[in-house]
Amino acid sequence: MDIIISNASGRPIYEQIYAQIKNAVVSGELSAGDALPSIRALAKDLRISVITTKRAYDELERDGYINTVAGKGCYVAPKDLSLVRESQLVEIEQCMRRILELAGPLGLGRAELAEMFENLCS
């Protein structure tokens, strides 16, 4: 699995790790039961902070992508399709919120936004 940390992106490092491991899980690159590198090993190999790496793993676990077995390590959780779908829906919703935020100051109404969207789809 490749994990690429970019300092220029302005995205918090824990988010970058979170997103890349999540993508690997969702895309099937990692399958259920696969062992993940330990927090410490990953942090030291990437030369990033242990705390930041832990934060990414904590969030992955909270969101159900990985499981931690005390004393053994972290593993990819059995894939729950409804969970994956749910998380994608949340992401779409966030993008839509962002559209509304951007549209507000421009005075774009619902109809105009819908039209833009129609044009995109066709």
Partner: peptide
């Protein structure tokens, strides 16, 4: 403080 938090 934690370094990465500072930068965030």
């Amino acid at each position: 403080e934690e370094k990465d938090r500072l930068l965030e």
